[in-house]
């Protein structure tokens, strides 16, 4: 096990590079999702009021 993590001494370079790649990729993915969710929520908040005059308040959820 130790040998596996050590990777002939290259582990110090290999593991950080994998960690960085996945932290950045996952981080960007989460940021994109959150951004989308926030925007959708903002639309939801606006929509019922905006539609209230014409269609009624419940039409917000598809």
């Amino acid at each position: 096990m130790v040998e596996f993590f050590n990777m002939d001494g290259y582990g110090v370079f290999i593991w950080p590079s994998y960690v960085i790649v996945f932290v950045v990729l996952i981080g960007l993915g989460i940021q994109s999702r959150k951004w989308l969710a926030n925007l959708e929520k903002a639309v939801q908040d606006l929509q019922p009021e905006g539609d209230a005059e014409s269609e009624g308040p419940q039409i917000g959820e598809p």
């Binding site: 993915g29 994109s32 989308l36 925007l39 959708e40 639309v43 606006l46 009021e49 905006g50």
Partner: peptide, 30 residues
């Protein structure tokens, strides 16, 4: 696959952002 997935999320977000802008504008005018 990652690129396509995140790209679609972000494009959808951009679309929603534009929709939101229109809605806000409408509301402000209303």
């Amino acid at each position: 696959a990652y690129f396509i997935t995140v790209l679609l999320w972000r494009m959808k977000a951009e679309l929603v952002a534009r929709k939101l802008q229109v809605l806000r504008l409408k509301k402000a005018q209303g």
